[in-house]
Design a protein around this nucleic acid. Sequence first.
DNA 1: GAGGATATCGAACAGTAGTTCGATCTCATC
DNA 2: GATGAGATCGAACTACTGTTCGATATCCTC
Lengths: 207, 207
Amino acid sequence: MAESAADTGAAAGQAEGGCPAVPERLLAAATRLFADRGFERTSVQELVDAAGVTKGAMYHYFASKEDVLFAVFRRVLATQMRNLDAFAAAEGPVAERLRAAAVDVVESTVANLDDMVIYFRSLHVLSYERQDQVREERRVYQDRFRALIEEGQRERVFRSDVPADMVASQYFGAVNHLGMWYRPDGELGGSEIGGYYADLLLAGLRP
Amino acid sequence: MAESAADTGAAAGQAEGGCPAVPERLLAAATRLFADRGFERTSVQELVDAAGVTKGAMYHYFASKEDVLFAVFRRVLATQMRNLDAFAAAEGPVAERLRAAAVDVVESTVANLDDMVIYFRSLHVLSYERQDQVREERRVYQDRFRALIEEGQRERVFRSDVPADMVASQYFGAVNHLGMWYRPDGELGGSEIGGYYADLLLAGLRP
DNA sequence: GAGGATATCGAACAGTAGTTCGATCTCATC
DNA sequence: GATGAGATCGAACTACTGTTCGATATCCTC
């Protein structure tokens, strides 16, 4: 996708010292408001008020309100691409690698909970083109995870009577749903939940 | 909650023969449009056009647009209460009962996919009061499922080193997320997916 | 200092949307 | 036939919203 004004402007508009650039402030405000209230229930006026700028400034960096939302999606996709690289680079027994990946998927989701809430609740807001693109990139992430399961099945470390795709869908479903109930101030942290989720996954895959 | 005009009017407004009453038509149209396009991206005008009435008629039966949405939520909650009754009434070894419940949760979700999509994507649209109420009732459903797991843990049929709450959350997360990817015309039906999901759940709970 | 580019403002524009309300129609009861 | 209640219509009301645009400020280069 073509670099937006927001991406190029972020460097150019960077303020000296503590005050972040206007695009960063807009994205931070957008993340909070879109997660708390929803994309549609957040007006452009409320968004720029929260960012401390005006609508003209926002439209200088972003082509539309949807473009702001899409910038959040790009950030989510960038995060998961970095995680994917970590999956691909890992070494060791496949069960260990799957376990580590499973924990990491949960920890990453919990660390970026607002982003994940926005992602799953607002996907339908995007144009069909952008939806397809986003789903495709998310698919790559989940497919890499599935490939680990398949590797384990080939090595007979995991059972083979359940399609790897089904296992990956079940696990990612559980993780993607964390945004609906997980609370940072709850009893369990991301690592603990990740530990349980990974353990249940691996136990379910025993031959 | 007080019976709305829609509930009382549904009987009174029932047409002779094939044409359903206005409230039913409104709910059917609302379900399709809210699932396909989202609650906010569906105008009242579009909704009543799809139902074949006018806005005045809609407001005769429903206090507001949100009230129409809430009627969909009430239907979801009614469905799960019926399912809950089935859980509670079941007999036999706990592993069998959990497996049957696990399959049923998936099958019920798949059978009411539009409702589930609307439920999870639009919960934030409801007032805080209604959100609390809806979450509380959904909680009862999930808690009953968790009670089965705990019963199995007490009987040492299931492992006890993972909190039953965590298991239930993981499973329900996976099921609740079906709305994001499951397609009725896909390779697998609800029963098959339910079978795999239940199998993975039971396998993960082996002592 | 002049000139050009970028950043930012905020009023105006061009609509859209949820809800209300007066009018009319239909049906049932007396 | 008269009356009353419920059902339904659709224009009007009362807002609100996303986007544009002309003006101004700031910064950098020459």
